[in-house]
Amino acid sequence: MGDENKELEETVGQILEKYRHDKGMLVSVLQDIQAKYRYLPKEALKQVCQGLLVPLSQVYSVATFFKAFSLLPRGRHLINVCLGTACHVRGTDKVLEKIERELGINAGSTTKDLKFTLETVNCVGACALGPIVKVDEEYHGEMSTDKVVSVLKSYT
């Protein structure tokens, strides 16, 4: 077994331990794994199914049901364009299209250089400042198409 696999197994083991192997905490377990690896590696899901004693089909259903989870590796920076109503009426669609053009990818995908993953989110709850673009943990409020390039450039 490679070092990477071993590290993954240990990390997932610790997360399962943290939630005391409680199957009710499946979503939280997956969230912690995703927080660590930015996506849900297949091997991790298999380990979760053994650790919580739930069928793999259930783990896979849950992992593909919730929007927050990704089964594919994501970029170094996660861009979340808020599609909440307040942002929508203030023109978030145009901002999203501009980002898509700048990065050359559609929402839901990752740039080839693995720098950015572009996703949309249904309301981050910062409605007063819409349109909102959240990059990693940073909120960019009152976004417009002409601010997109400078925001993207600020990430390395």
Binding site: M25, L30, V62, F65, A68
Partner: peptide
């Protein structure tokens, strides 16, 4: 606390 996974 349980955290949701992004599902309305």
């Amino acid at each position: 606390i349980n955290r949701g996974g992004g599902a309305f």
